[in-house]
Design a protein around this nucleic acid. Sequence first.
DNA 1: GGTTCCTGCAAATTATTTTCTTGATAAGTT
DNA 2: AACTTATCAAGAAAATAATTTGCAGGAACC
Lengths: 288, 288
Amino acid sequence: MDIFSTLQEDKSRLSASESRIAEIVVNDFEFAVNASIIELAERAEVSPPTVTRFCRRLGCESFSDFKVQLARTAHVGVRYLKPESKSHAPSDVAQDIITKAQNALFLLHRSLDLTAIEAAVAQIARAEMIYAFGSGGNSSMIADELQNRLFRLGLRATSSSDHSMQLMMAAAAKPGDVIIGSSFSGRNAELVRAFALAREGKVRTIALTQTDSPVASAAEIVVPIDLPEGTNIYRPTSTRIAYIATVDILASLVAYAIQPKALTTLRRIKQQLVAHRDGDDDKQLLGD
Amino acid sequence: MDIFSTLQEDKSRLSASESRIAEIVVNDFEFAVNASIIELAERAEVSPPTVTRFCRRLGCESFSDFKVQLARTAHVGVRYLKPESKSHAPSDVAQDIITKAQNALFLLHRSLDLTAIEAAVAQIARAEMIYAFGSGGNSSMIADELQNRLFRLGLRATSSSDHSMQLMMAAAAKPGDVIIGSSFSGRNAELVRAFALAREGKVRTIALTQTDSPVASAAEIVVPIDLPEGTNIYRPTSTRIAYIATVDILASLVAYAIQPKALTTLRRIKQQLVAHRDGDDDKQLLGD
DNA sequence: GGTTCCTGCAAATTATTTTCTTGATAAGTT
DNA sequence: AACTTATCAAGAAAATAATTTGCAGGAACC
């Protein structure tokens, strides 16, 4: 557990003086990690012992322990509390995008539903055939990615971003097959329809989407991905990164679940690639 | 600058005693961030003042400053020095993937070539037509992603993962057009050929790939993405994430470069989407 | 009115840094 | 070649600063 979550959760249990300390820590993180207990106490207009007690209440051993914990999580965690930079200079834009991406991963980690993931992995690992659905540029990439990752494991997988094809495939799928649908917004009505159709035919359905969304309610297993999307319309990235990481987690776990099969297939794909290109370099990746 | 880079670089300037401290810091990071100066000194078999001097040499104000800086970067930075967890438990796998992804972003940020990026952005922003090339599952995703991001800005863009098509498109492209090729390995011979063909016809070429690779030498502008790929064959993710972030940075900068045009196009795409789905929710993303 | 909890003061403890000194190494000099 | 001198690393001890503990006053809440 990190300090910031604890701060959020234990906010009510803090006394007036302690809240004042908390506020400074959240608002001026730079100051807080560099300050001594005395400086922090002065700025919050409390005594040093109060700061120590504050740290203890948050589950830290001591003030220095608190500072270290703060520095550790805040590197990733605190930035989403800060207003984004308004500059369009390349270095700022790059920094901003990378920070947001890291935050997305940080938030993803904290909100991961491992139970749902395990359930999804179990279904995928034993599926006869896997259909990955997603549309609209972002989710279609995720669908392709799912197929890309799963076929390498020796599983039968296909993907489609075409609504009509999705419906037809859902209708054609058999019990024992699995449909994985991705929707960033959770409001892809056609995907909902495909899920409904699939469930009628006893086909397993897995959704990668927002909780409490139409797509989520339509699927049997929901792997929830809930992230605040920034308001800047130019930059929908961070969510995308969280989805990719989730696909990666799913694919890795499936790989472990079906170990021997996956290993052979991967080896064969790799041999094929190496033979096809230059033979002297084994370091290249599987599939560029 | 973070402590770990400094440690790497100043390694030669450290004395014997200081190197012993450095070794402990790198190998047992957990101990180092939690220890007091006395504990650290004892373990390295040096005196406390030597530890203070060590911190100063690394550019820190004091020992506590050192600890804070260490904690800040290490959260992201140190883990790639450590052997990866061998457990296949879902939580460990998830943690591992997310950490690696964050590391990839961290490393990306430190190795970004902003000059190359600016040059690429300038070319893309004024291109008549943009061709995004990439093959093999990973890079083909990046090519699609480039198209996906750029067409939304009102630019003319297409993508292809088909080697033959790439060659034909490269031959058909005109001066004023831009070809962006992605290759994780840098050893995609067909892409090299397409680049050569394009350059004959005065078409601008941009490569997203490893430095000092065949693909890199074939392109006019190289946006280098150099990351150590983990050895685990199941998990090629982290590089992918760095590529996606890079595409995002490029696309965002292009968007800013051509502001008014991009804004109108985005607005029209959004209207189209909202009209097509349910009208009551403006929060949905551009393209799922 | 009693209990509980917050808070600050002052003292005690602990940690950290500074200063000073010693010893080692290397370059220069006779 | 032997001696001198400069430079620097490193520890001891002292000084300083930071942090914590114990205690007591006071406020708020039964």
